[in-house]
Design a protein around this nucleic acid. Structure first.
Lengths: 125, 125
DNA sequence: ACAATATGGGAAGAATTTCTCCCTATGCAA
DNA sequence: TTGCATAGGGAGAAATTCTTCCCATATTGT
């Protein structure tokens, strides 16, 4: 496992949140688990842009941070279900607020994102 | 400037938000600008863990995404002030919610974060 | 003259994160 | 028997982000 060389700074609330949510797919994982997609394979299908590997890793981290919990059913083929802990559930309103802001401003966001990507391409000519 | 090789996916609101906020210091920059720390040097003092370089880069990105705007006073030594755009201001309640969650759960967050860091050190022995 | 302040960007390399490929294990279906 | 689905993890490459160092400009204070 990769071991950090620079320790995180944990001064204010925003630092702490960053420490547990900063990962490309973590917020979406929490979101989809909340929506009822609890099995790893379901989550992978909901988030096809992420590699199977990272999803596993980020699920492990979310579990280590007690935002989700994992139940392994002793079957074959294996069956695993994740669910939000109470702690994790308390984050959902915040994630919902984020998502709503993104949805409500989707058009404008697409514009400014596209504009910036073009600029970058200009730079590299 | 670095040019992305993998284009971002912009399906849902959460993807769009991630695209403009995913950067180690962006949320904190918005936060401090909202609190009235508008000059780059002030922001650098408020966020000493970040290098000057990244703060500049992330400020540029926030500006490109129209969350903040920049005023350059034609003076020497130069004076620059950033401020939130209306668009940027609309994000503040969401950031506040994130920060409040982090502050409200600070103790527990520190615990689980510390616990996980220890585990990693165990692994590497 | 020289240092300090303020701002900003290039370049190179370190740090970190993510991706790809491969291997394991079990049971079911063609 | 071969192929697929489920789940998970190691190793190394690739992508991305961040840091460090250096340079440039102009003014003020020593």
């Amino acid at each position: 496992m990769y071991e950090r060389k620079i320790s995180p700074n944990l001064h204010c609330g925003l630092d702490l949140v960053a420490e547990v949510l900063y990962g490309k797919w973590k917020i979406r994982l929490l979101w989809f688990i909340n929506e009822g997609y609890q099995r790893p394979s379901e989550l992978q299908r909901k988030i096809p842009d992420a590699s199977r590997r990272v999803l596993n890793i980020q699920l492990n981290e979310l579990e280590a941070h007690e935002l989700i919990s994992k139940v392994i059913y002793p079957q074959a083929p294996p069956k695993v279900e994740y669910s939000l802990t109470e702690f994790g559930k308390s984050l959902i309103p915040v994630i919902t607020a984020l998502g709503n802001w993104g949805d409500g401003n989707a058009e404008r966001l697409r514009e400014v994102i596209a504009k910036r990507l073009e600029q970058n391409q200009d730079c590299s000519r």
